[in-house]
Nucleic acid binder design. Structure first.
Length: 220
DNA sequence: CACCAGGCAAGTA
DNA sequence: TACTTGCATGGT
């Protein structure tokens, strides 16, 4: 009854149901990082509008964003919500990215993971999930990304206690799965996809442990 | 109309 | 340390 079997079982079920989701939806690693900041507590459809607005103006590059005024940037990313604070966060991240790595994802991806994660967490506006999303989806590091859906799904399946925090949930996955970038990528994508459809906040699937995943699925 | 969305940081006690 | 609140648009 180890949780390892549960996690592998969930993965197999969801993977069979949804197939390859090939995340992150972006054209290049820098767009991944920008998207990771813009999607904080925000519906992805809103982020798409903001990304599109940046692309239309050819502003989706570290240099362009560095030169752009914060107020101007805020106006452009307005549809993503929290636009003033996100403009500040994007500017802070771009300064970090250029100062430390000259805007090179390859340069950033050299060196050990805990050190890089620590540096990302020092950038104002980058917390655990945003840092881990950048590490996994932009830098291709074997880091598991947890999020609100991951937490909710595990809670409703009673696989973690109510008070489990981000790091505990991340550790649960990383201690029980091989450190494989493709696996972590697909697993996170599957959890988000599942969450959007079967594990929303209000719809009536309250503390029900098993009705969440697709019908023929679970037997945990 | 109310509620939610792929968080994070600052304020309070 | 442990809660609480602000940030904000667009979809259901």
């Amino acid at each position: 009854m180890g949780c390892r079997e549960d996690l592998l079982s969930i993965y197999e079920i969801l993977n069979a149901h949804f197939g390859d989701l090939h995340w992150w939806p972006a054209d290049d690693p820098f767009e991944v990082m920008v998207g990771a900041i813009l999607t904080q507590n925000t519906a992805w459809t809103n982020v798409e509008k903001a990304i599109a607005a940046l692309k239309e103006r050819r502003l989706l590059s570290p240099g362009a964003l560095l030169r752009l005024g914060e107020e101007t940037l805020a106006g452009i990313i307005r549809p993503s919500g929290y636009y003033r604070i996100k403009a500040k966060r994007l500017k802070a991240f771009v300064r970090f990215f250029l100062d430390e790595y000259e805007g090179s994802v390859e340069a950033m991806s050299v060196g050990d993971i805990p050190l890089l994660r620590g540096k990302l967490l020092r950038v104002p506006g980058i917390g655990p999930e945003t840092a881990d999303s950048i590490l996994l989806f932009a830098c291709q590091k074997p880091v598991f990304v947890s999020d609100a859906y991951t937490r909710r799904i595990l809670l409703r399946h009673r696989l973690v206690p109510e008070d489990a925090d981000y790091d505990q949930i991340q550790t649960l996955f990383m201690a029980n799965l091989p450190p494989d970038v493709s696996l972590f990528n697909q697993f996170h994508a599957l959890l988000v996809q599942t969450g959007k459809i079967f594990c929303r906040k209000t719809p009536q699937c309250d503390p029900c442990p098993l009705g969440i995943l697709p019908a023929e699925t679970v037997s945990l």
